[in-house]
């Protein structure tokens, strides 16, 4: 294949990458535009921000606090806090990052309050989350695993749990987790390490009982 024939394919790839990053930029810019409009009292703009981010907020909340029945109320709290914070929002962070901070704070408060009241996962809901194309056996196993992981996480202290989920599950760098949790990166690292150790001990104990 000649060098000339290579060029369009490479250029298309580059253009695709550029388009993807442009999309992100445009999305961030559209968010900024909507925030500016919402700051002037435009409720339609706020509703649009809600529509754009609600699923992300919900997913993050679920990963942080599990299948708690009050997630819907917590989503509402997140957006209400966001609405109250709008006048102070200067666009230093993206809307998604700003919302993530609120989600973490509200999740922490919720976990702190109901730590001992174990959130039980609804089987139906878990069923909707496991891979739809898996075999019934695989689905049952995934469902069981999901229920188990949330039961284990529930035994961790809220700060450790949040640090673990943000760093290990969501793969955020320690510095970013530290910003979100208003802590020092070193403290976050320690929480993650403790959380991991405690989870391993729990699994080991469970394994021992099983065996």
């Amino acid at each position: 294949m000649s060098k000339r024939e290579h060029r369009p394919a490479q250029a298309v790839e580059r253009a695709r990458e550029a388009a993807a990053s442009t999309r992100q930029l445009l999305a961030a810019q559209a968010d900024a535009t909507l925030v500016r409009a919402a700051q002037t009292g435009d409720r339609t703009a706020f509703e649009e921000l809600y529509r754009r981010h609600v699923q992300l907020v919900y997913a993050r909340l679920t990963r942080l606090i599990g299948f708690s029945p009050d997630r819907e109320d917590l989503v509402q709290q997140v957006f209400w806090s966001f609405h109250l914070a709008l006048p102070r929002y200067r666009g230093d962070a993206s809307v998604a990052a700003f919302l993530h901070g609120i989600v973490v704070h509200i999740a922490y408060e919720a976990l702190r309050k109901r730590r001992r009241a174990m959130g039980t996962s609804k089987e139906l809901e878990l069923d909707q989350l496991v891979a739809p194309d898996a075999t019934p056996e695989a689905r049952a196993r995934q469902r069981e695993q999901l229920a188990r992981v949330f039961v284990l996480l529930e035994r961790l202290k809220p700060k450790k749990r949040i640090a673990f989920v943000l760093h290990v599950v969501e793969e955020l760098p320690l510095t970013e987790v530290a910003v979100l949790t208003r802590s020092q990166p070193r403290a976050v690292g320690q929480r993650v390490a403790y959380a991991r150790r405690e989870l391993l001990q729990m699994l080991q104990r469970e394994g021992g009982v099983d065996e």
């Binding site: 699923q55 919900y58 990963r63 989503v75």
Partner: peptide, 29 residues
């Protein structure tokens, strides 16, 4: 086992259903 569970949790994509979304939106409005 922990890695497997973590990966499962990472792949979790829960979605707020349409009614709940609208309900929250109505309360917010």
């Amino acid at each position: 086992e922990l890695d497997e569970m973590t990966a499962l949790l990472r792949g979790l994509r829960p979605e707020l259903d349409e009614l709940a979304r609208a309900r929250v939106q109505a309360r917010l409005s």
